[in-house]
């Protein structure tokens, strides 16, 4: 028996193309900004107020400004156009790329697989995440562990900056780590590790409680993914503007 003979790719009459287009443009703009700042290799540290942009934290090579290297300079200066963030970006990027929300976002927006529900995808063949390279999406767990470590480092940086007083930059760094923490905690892997993997919730009341709390955050995973991503860029922009002398930091307590 055959399917109903309907030639149209979709009969949807709403603007189904708008969400994937918005996602695509949003991710593209953020990628361009992040690439520019990564390869700029400058304006990442405000010496006067100890602001370090999260994009360059931890700064681990010998070309880093010594005061910005809170954890030492473990590696020699990178050759050519390579900059210190290239050592940490694979982990941060890996965490976002393998994230269950972002997978949905870019599978739809960038790969049209599918572009929207009940809209036919343009590919002849589909094997999903059953084989290389997409089977590597299962590495999300590794990246979650790495991103959690980097989050702790970002929190340390933000707390350290309070040693010079209180300015708008401190507030921005604090909001940034709060959003990053909320995004990381709301991760599906985190939810699973906390309690989702259990078969008997009733035998593990503490983990069940943790699971219910993380589940509440997990309901907002998409919003937290976007909020934290955009705010990292805004935090970096603020630090870059202050570090370059374009604007001065608004100080509340010195």
């Amino acid at each position: 028996m055959a399917r109903a003979e309907i030639a149209a790719r979709t009969l949807r009459t709403d603007r189904w193309w708008l969400p994937p287009l918005t996602t695509f443009v949003g991710l593209l703009l953020i990628s361009i900004y992040a690439a520019f700042r990564t390869f700029q290799g400058d304006y990442y540290w405000v010496d006067q107020y100890h602001y370090l942009t999260p994009m360059y934290s931890p700064c681990l090579t010998e070309e880093c400004i010594p005061a910005a290297s809170h954890f030492g300079q473990w590696f020699p200066a990178l050759p050519g156009f390579l900059t210190p963030p290239l050592l940490i970006i694979p982990f941060l990027l890996g965490f976002r790329i393998t994230c269950y929300y972002y997978r949905k976002a870019y599978y739809r927006a960038a790969w049209a697989s599918p572009p929207a529900c009940a809209v036919a995808e343009p590919h002849d063949k589909y094997t999903g995440e059953t084989r290389f390279p997409l089977i590597a999406q299962n590495l999300h767990r590794y990246f979650f562990y790495a991103a959690s470590l980097l989050l702790l480092i970002n929190i340390y940086d933000a707390v350290l900056a309070f040693g010079t007083g209180l300015g708008l930059g401190n507030i921005i760094l604090l909001v940034n780590v709060s959003l990053l923490a909320a995004y990381t905690l709301s991760c599906h892997s985190c939810r699973h590790i906390a309690g989702g993997r259990l078969k008997h919730f009733s035998k593990h009341p503490v983990r069940y409680w943790a699971w219910t709390q993380i589940s509440k955050l997990n309901n907002r995973h998409m919003q937290l993914a976007w909020a934290s991503l955009i705010f990292v860029c805004l935090t970096d922009l603020y630090v870059a503007l202050v570090a370059s002398g374009t604007i001065s930091d608004l100080r509340f307590i010195d």
Binding site: R103, Y107, S113, P114, C117, A118, Y126, G128, E129
Partner: peptide, 28 residues
Amino acid sequence: GLGYCNITKCCSEVCPEHIHITDNALIP
């Protein structure tokens, strides 16, 4: 064939019972 699922959540979008199929069953 769980590996075929690429969690684009259309199943959850159309469910008339509003079951969180992707978040509560497929991703776990």
